[in-house]
């Protein structure tokens, strides 16, 4: 009788042991080779990263999303704006609204990617000193192509913090009040990361969720506060290019 395998009778496997050993060996090599190949072609998640504990003093701008505008210095002659967010996937809109236009001391953890400077886990405290109203500089009307991301993940808390795999997370973050950023395919006046707001400069409407995580083309105006560009657009009119 030719070979016949019975699971509970190990000796019955002997006629096929060579074949099975070869199959198992090939499977192990194949799995390891595929793991090496797939693991080594990971998409570049970009350079966003932790930038240290922060303790900053500046003026709060609450709309469209919380910003802290720092006074001009040698590195930032027009002033420097830092996007503010809470711990986890929540914003600090309530804190920022209460202190809008006032000088505050902000503490939190910094993340930086390109021109995005983000503080998370932010706590605001009123501070003494001047609180000049930040200047809003119009940069004209633009048709931009790029991706709507949540500023927190995109700035380096997650790598990658963009793309369709990350879409649901971006929606949860932005719904929770984390500032959204528009990552453009080409720079706008030197900025590839633009804070987003609606056409009137307020927070995005709830309908943004269909447009996150993928390339979108949209029209709107761009303004600058300190060194942060803000894209004011009707996100519901966005189209897939």
């Amino acid at each position: 009788m030719s070979a016949f395998f019975v699971g509970w009778h190990l000796a019955s496997i002997r006629p096929w042991a060579g074949f099975l050993g070869m199959v198992c060996g090939c499977a192990m090599v194949l799995f390891a080779a595929v793991a090496l190949a797939l693991g080594s072609v990971a998409s570049d998640p970009g350079g966003g990263d932790f930038s240290g504990e922060k303790d900053l003093t500046g003026v709060v701008v609450a709309a469209p999303y919380p910003l802290l505008v720092l006074a001009p210095d040698a590195e930032h002659p027009t002033g420097h704006a830092v996007l503010l967010s809470g711990g986890g996937k929540v914003g600090i809109q309530v804190q920022a609204d209460a202190l809008n236009g006032k000088r505050v001391r902000a503490t939190g953890v910094g993340f930086k990617r390109g021109t995005i400077d983000m503080m998370v886990g932010v706590q605001l405290q009123p501070a003494e000193g001047p609180s000049p109203e930040p200047t809003v500089i119009p940069l004209g009307v633009w048709r931009l192509t790029g991706e709507i991301c949540d500023g927190k993940c995109e700035s380096g808390i997650m790598r990658p913090g963009n793309g369709l795999s990350h879409k649901a997370c971006a929606n949860v973050c932005i719904s929770g009040g984390v500032p959204p950023v528009f990552v453009t395919t080409a720079p706008v006046e030197g900025a590839s990361f633009l804070l987003m707001g609606d056409a009137q400069g307020r927070a995005l409407p709830d309908a943004f969720g269909d447009h996150t995580g993928m390339l979108q083309r949209m029209d709107g105006s761009v303004v600058r506060i300190a060194d942060v560009a803000i894209f004011r657009t009707d996100v519901t009119a966005a189209v897939t290019p």
Partner: peptide, 12 residues
């Protein structure tokens, strides 16, 4: 092992 062969700015 594979991350040593990635061409990325920073790792995932």
């Amino acid at each position: 092992v594979a991350p040593h062969f990635q061409h990325v700015t920073l790792p995932l």
